[in-house]
Design a protein around this nucleic acid. Structure first.
Lengths: 206, 206, 206, 206
DNA sequence: TATGAATGAGTGTTCATTCAT
DNA sequence: TATGAATGAACACTCATTCAT
């Protein structure tokens, strides 16, 4: 029933093409024709190719930070997570599947040595999301020192988020390369995480 | 004393620029001027832009697979690793630092949805490195089923290699973003790995 | 009290922008946003970009030819000019200051080698303004042959109008370049005209 | 015998087209095809469209300032000019005919309100051409105060150079508009200058 | 009278690649 | 082994103009 606007079509096609070829490898002409709109319309809505990318990032971070905020507010970080918190975190990680394309683009762009601080970091950093008071409140509540918080960020990002991201982004090609069916692959990966990252969490929980 | 040939200069500069801007974002002109050689010379040595990339990958995989082979042959995978095996694996992971630029490029290229099987997978896959006989010999020796080997590959790649890769490639920007000194960051990361991936290995070793 | 219509705002902004960047250098988008109206409205009032220019020229020539006509009719060209004629000519040249922007545009367009007869010539040409009878009457009255009239046109245009035009259009930048205050510059220019063009007129007047 | 290089062909065609349509109105595509070279070659030699224009200006000012310098050094400005000085000034003004196209472009660009100090002023300004010592020497020799020199510049530029420039640039269209043959037109213009600017010079010479 | 959305045809510019020497 | 000149095809982006409302 809802009419899909040209603007939305452009964003959707850009997302797909940036994910497929990388930002530099994707062509505006292609995005336009794929979206079935005139090339100039892209420049009417977004000011430049980069502008499209930034809008894509902006939209994603809006959504993802809302989800992360919900998790934190549901008490996801203090001691044993409540049921709501569990649901929040599930939604959060569910996003990794649903928003695979943008995550792919974000990771690719983050890997370039040139640019500014990668948008990717926002996946674990709630300092840009919560207010200072909230952070202070949270760190008091959980009784974590600054050191401990830094350690937590690093552990979550590098041994939790990154493996999951890699799995989501490379799974398909892994299965083709090693001739493993996708369901088996999922089992392997889940076990791998259980034995490493999740094992650590359980230990801490006790 | 060793004369650095134009060919080597081109490869070195290409490596740096591909890492900085990504393959598509890097320009042949720039590589040439950075290397102090004529643009056409690049086409004399390598047949195309992609040719340069492939040479870079080829060289890296040559070296890395040699290191991995050494590890396997030193018995790195059977039971408790010997001292030689330990040294081999250290050298192997040392490469992650030294060859950061190429790994960066490989990861970026691997993330594109379009292309063929990512060169990146070769980091854990010795099926391209060892002969069939050798693999069979090894799998018999270690008593691993095909399932177990697949599980091992997945675990090593996603919870061992990927975090390390991410750490090596994003560390600098992480430190800037979160205002953490590099040495502290190293401590956090080592602990994170100890608590997750390495903890798992120790458990298995017993 | 007088309401400035959108139409007038468009014309005024077009005038300023054409003067600033030249006709080709100015952009319809810019004119619209500067005038605070929708781009399409420009096409509603004037049929095209050129249409705006032509309206601007039309308006100017209307006014300027009226002034020139008044001068001629007040007897400005026969022998010693009356007081009314003097006032007419003062008003005429006063226009050079007030309508600087359009004159600038007209001169720029006139300089292109491609186009038709420059609107600029109308500044001295009353053949487009007076009827044939009037011209004949005037030329009889003043006793000038066709040759003499041509000579007069040339003299007036190239040594009277053009220097004044140049002064009006380049004065500001001349003062900046040569670091001369504007009032001094005016003195220099007035003297220059007195010593050359006006000296000639006085001699003829006697 | 001399081979006309692609570079020269580009410059020549750019000159013609800029003069015909104005800088903004001229198209790089057209320049390339007119010059019989590939469009990209223009960017190989000059970095941009503007770069072509600037090269054109640079070359002209080089030549014109050399001529003006010769005139001044031959004593063209002190008292009654020598024969060499006369020849120098003839060459200088001869340039107005030969280099009409560039002068046309320079004037058009100078008329835009936006840009920096018009290159056009260099036609009378030798402060960019002679060294400070030379200027001081000259001003002492000729016994002119700074005021007098400023007056001279203004007089020369606005009542000498500008009319000549206008004549050279508008003559053709004037003749068409007023239906005057070119040779008659020349006579009219020469007389106009004799009666105004040159009359002033003769008076001063005495 | 006014506008937001849309477009065709270009516009300057870039790029990987080739060629003659 | 090395280079300056040259190119075709594309590239991101722009612009005057139109259309539906």
């Amino acid at each position: 029933m809802k009419k899909i606007t040209s603007r939305q079509k452009i964003l959707r096609c850009a997302e797909v093409l940036f994910a497929e070829k990388g930002y530099d490898g994707a062509r505006i002409d292609r995005i336009a024709s794929e979206a079935g709109v005139n090339k100039a319309l892209i420049y009417y809505y977004f000011k430049s190719k980069r502008g499209v990318l930034e809008e894509l990032f902006r939209n994603f971070l809006h959504e993802s930070s809302a989800k992360m905020m919900a998790y934190v507010r549901d008490g996801g970080l203090d001691g044993s997570p409540s049921e709501e918190a569990q649901q929040s975190i599930d939604e959060y990680f569910g996003m990794f599947e649903k928003k695979r394309d943008i995550l792919r683009i974000m990771l690719m762009e983050s890997l370039k040595e040139g640019g500014g601080s990668p948008a990717l970091f926002n996946l674990v950093d709630f300092s840009g999301v919560l207010s200072e008071q909230e952070i202070e409140y949270f760190s008091k509540e959980s009784g974590m020192s600054s050191e401990e918080m830094n350690q937590m960020f690093v552990t979550e990002f590098f041994t939790g988020v990154m493996p999951l991201l890699a799995y989501v982004l490379l799974r398909k090609r892994w299965c083709e390369h090693f001739k493993v069916p996708e369901d088996k692959m999922k089992k392997y990966f889940d076990r791998a995480m259980d034995m490493t990252h999740h094992a650590h969490h359980k230990k801490m929980g006790k």
